[in-house]
Design a protein around this nucleic acid. Structure first.
Lengths: 136, 136
DNA sequence: CCGCATTTAATGCAAGCGCATTTAATTCCA
DNA sequence: TGGAATTAAATGCGCTTGCATTAAATGCGG
């Protein structure tokens, strides 16, 4: 087990995460009134289809269950999403993205892509890194 | 500019950061009474030598100036670090790691390494990833 | 030498997070 | 079938964070 590799990877992850998160918070917030968590939830909703159980969102988004619950509440207040109790299991809640939610996501997507591109290309990882992420 | 690469890398960074941070918080906290930020500051102090200006720490640690100020305050209260006003520039503050701080860091280091190893090897990135972090 | 801009670190404040708990609905088995 | 255990989501709470501001010390131009 290569200790140096592990520690080096960790520092890389820390640095990129900090830079990207900070920039996303600023750009998405100022330009579109969205936090990174709000955008991430919207993004998953768009890619996954119309309705999604909160529990399933929880597996895909890097948030605790309670944090996700509040993000969804904020999104609902902003009318970007609506909550619908599940008929089959009335404990469950479906989250449905609204048309306005889709529109806001579409608006914000280029901003997110621009931020990520700038973060991951300014001190570009060597080409070999690509295979680490996309797989062999 | 490969959009897929950028987004894929971002998801990788998000996933690893979340997993590692969560585990570090738990393990370092339960076993050694340290948060990830406290450990990171201690770690930099150990590697950098005896005294370090807060401003310099700020460049190396992924925290805002205010957050760092508070982390140092917590560490000082725990006697792991001491603050000394700089004689040459009395606005500046030197942070000095104490013997107890060094000891605590030495105690916690294996825990951190174990956590990182488990995170970065459980679903191991392909070997090619190594060159992305350590350089060509 | 004086005053104003700058820099360093600390602090007030609000927001977001995770943990633990709560509330409500469902499942299981005796 | 009925009651205990389980599961889903929401909520109370304390903590950490970042932004903006403050307080103190320094530097610089006139």
């Amino acid at each position: 087990m290569d200790e140096e590799f592990v520690v080096g990877t960790w520092h890389y992850v820390l640095a990129k995460h900090a830079k990207a998160m900070c920039a996303l918070e600023r750009e998405l917030g100022d330009r579109h009134g969205l936090g990174p968590s709000e955008f991430e939830v919207l993004d998953r909703m768009v890619h996954h289809g119309r309705k999604l159980r909160i529990q399933e969102l929880c597996d895909e988004v890097h948030l605790s269950q309670s944090a996700l619950s509040r993000v969804v509440a904020r999104l609902e207040k902003a009318a970007l999403v609506s909550r619908v109790v599940c008929d089959a299991d009335r404990r469950g809640v479906f989250v449905c993205i609204t048309d306005e939610g889709r529109a806001r996501h579409a608006e914000a997507l280029p901003t997110q892509r621009a931020v990520l591109s700038s973060v991951f290309t300014e001190a570009p990882a060597p080409a070999a890194f690509e295979s680490a992420v996309t797989g062999p």
